[in-house]
Nucleic acid binder design. Structure first.
Lengths: 152, 152
DNA sequence: CTTGAATCTATAGTCGCTACAAGTTTTATG
DNA sequence: CATAAAACTTGTAGCGACTATAGATTCAAG
């Protein structure tokens, strides 16, 4: 693995990886990408391998992996000879979380739909939306939306 | 509307509404609930109407409404004679957001499933999960997971 | 050499809480 | 009534993953 000469500025790096310079500096601060080499004047300069690394990071983040998970995935992708069990475990765990979020979000959608569809458009006093929000008993499923906050 | 005498402590209030005392104080700080009356010693005491208000808040939050949306919903539920168009608008808007989140989360799940199922369990070097994360082109849908971070 | 874009650091803000620390008040028991 | 335990008080900092701002500096193009 030969490093390419570090000629890429933080702006171009960010653009090519699909994020902002601030995010790159943030990733440097938390150690997701290493310290960049600098120009005499102190500006960061990167080589192609950092573009690849940052692209990997952004892609994994787009998949919803947490920064900690990305950190582990990065560490593993740096060890090509190791078995990929752990990679698989992380991805499978994440998939399970996504599936569980989907279920709850879907139940939430059903409740919201029901609520909205029952609003007759009169006064607030008799608005079904307000009524449902006031009275948990009017929900079909008690568990449906307990903790929607975690769903984003 | 007669106010009940304020005898309920913050702990009982929180328990009855399904949150924590810290959350109640937080809601007071941001103005979702008004300032409570106090004992001589300075402790907060509440009446039943606050239990109802806090329950409404928690319920709306469980439905995934933002605090700002809850603020508006509260303001409207305080005006029973007004038409409920705005209530409906807020709820419908929220429903649309939930539906859009669902679509993206569902596409994300499909990609994750595909990725995980293609992992043959060998070395990291040839792990499909790492490959997909390294190369956006291997995704079926480019849009599928662009911004999963917002999905929770 | 000048201009303007890009970059630098440091810090604070976002959202909606949650957690802690160190002190005070209330309530229950002996 | 004394004591202990529970609940409460304020203030502040932390979470995750950035994002935004300010004010200074550096770089690249003409």
């Amino acid at each position: 693995m030969s490093e390419s000469s570090p000629t890429i500025g933080i702006g171009e790096l960010a653009r090519r990886a699909g994020c902002k310079p601030e995010t790159v500096r943030y990733y440097e601060r938390i150690g997701l990408v290493g310290d960049a080499s600098r120009t005499e004047g102190g500006q960061r300069r990167y080589g192609e391998e950092v573009v690849r690394r940052l692209t990997f990071i952004r892609h994994a983040r787009d998949f919803g992996f947490s920064v900690d998970a990305v950190r582990e995935l990065l560490a593993m992708s740096d060890q090509p000879d190791m078995p990929c069990q752990e990679v698989d475990a992380i991805a499978t765990h994440h998939l399970e979380e996504v599936e569980s979020r989907l279920q709850r979000l879907s139940a939430l959608r059903d409740e919201l739909r029901r609520m909205v569809s029952q609003c007759a458009g009169g006064k607030v006093e008799s608005c079904r939306i307000i009524e449902v929000l006031s009275d948990h008993q009017l929900c079909i499923s008690e568990q449906a939306h307990g903790g929607a906050r975690e769903l984003g």
